[in-house]
Amino acid sequence: MKGNRIITIGRQIGSGGSEIGTEVAKRLGIKCYDKQLIELACNYGELDQDVLAAAEEKRPNPFFYSVPRQMQNDKTGRGIAINDMVFNVQSEVIRQLAEKESCVIIGRCADYVLREQPGVTSVFVYADMDARIRRIMEVRKLTRDDAITLIKKTDKSRRNYYECYTGKRWGAGASYDVTLNSAELGIDTCVDLICHLYNRKEEGESQD
């Protein structure tokens, strides 16, 4: 029996990774999970959404260590850092989604969480700094200086989070199946390539 096929997309802010993931899912007729993972994790772990959103994709903070007593349960764990709790809960939700359906998952160390799951293609989308600055300025209506500040802050946060929980280098080619330069290739070509990889996995499975 054919298993589900999952595409995980790591991304630099301003690279268009989320847009690429959304378009890939639309074209393939599957779901894309990005910020929806926050709501799903809250429902699964019976958590406050504001608390989870503030802690997700950030490495543990030693000054904000223990999960508040009112949030502790068998699913969230007890006596651990809030960030660890969020990672654990989101990871369980990601594994449940991979078991249930083919889909695209954006960020959240999904490539690592599903490292033992067959049928997973891990992608990292990046772009040169100037292209990222222009995109952030346009999409978020920020000044150039504010866009640069946001990029540096978000890159640092995502890198620390990924490397803390995976032991791999964020954005390094060896950490993923495929890395794509969206500034050089363009959004549409990135979508085409990822869809091609997805369909090739289906062809491979049909020949087994």
Rank of each mutant, 00 (worst) to 15 (best):
C103V: 14
N43T: 09
V104W: 02
C42W: 00
P60T: 11
R78A: 12
D48F: 06
D84W: 05
Q70H: 14
Y65P: 00
K58H: 13
S102C: 08
E99Q: 15
A55K: 07
I94E: 01
V86C: 11
Q90M: 13
A98N: 12
M85D: 04
V104Q: 01
K58C: 12
L97A: 02
V86P: 00
L40K: 12
L97W: 02
I94T: 01
N83V: 00
A54Q: 13
A54F: 06
N61T: 09
E57Y: 02
Q90V: 12
Q72Y: 02
E99G: 15
I82V: 15
A54N: 12
F64Q: 12
D50S: 15
P68R: 03
A81M: 09
E57N: 11
A41Y: 00
T76V: 15
A110C: 11
P60D: 11
Q49R: 09
G45R: 04
N61C: 09
S66D: 07
N43L: 08
G77S: 06
A53W: 02
P60M: 09
P60H: 06
N88G: 15
P68S: 06
Y65F: 11
D84S: 13
R95Q: 14
E46Q: 14
V67H: 05
S91D: 08
E57Q: 10
Q90D: 08
S102E: 05
V51L: 14
N43F: 02
Y65M: 08
N88S: 13
S66T: 10
G45N: 08
V89E: 02
N61G: 10
Q70I: 12
R108E: 00
V86F: 01
D84P: 06
L40S: 02
S66L: 05
I106M: 15
E92L: 07
S91P: 05
L47V: 09
C103T: 13
F87R: 04
Y44T: 04
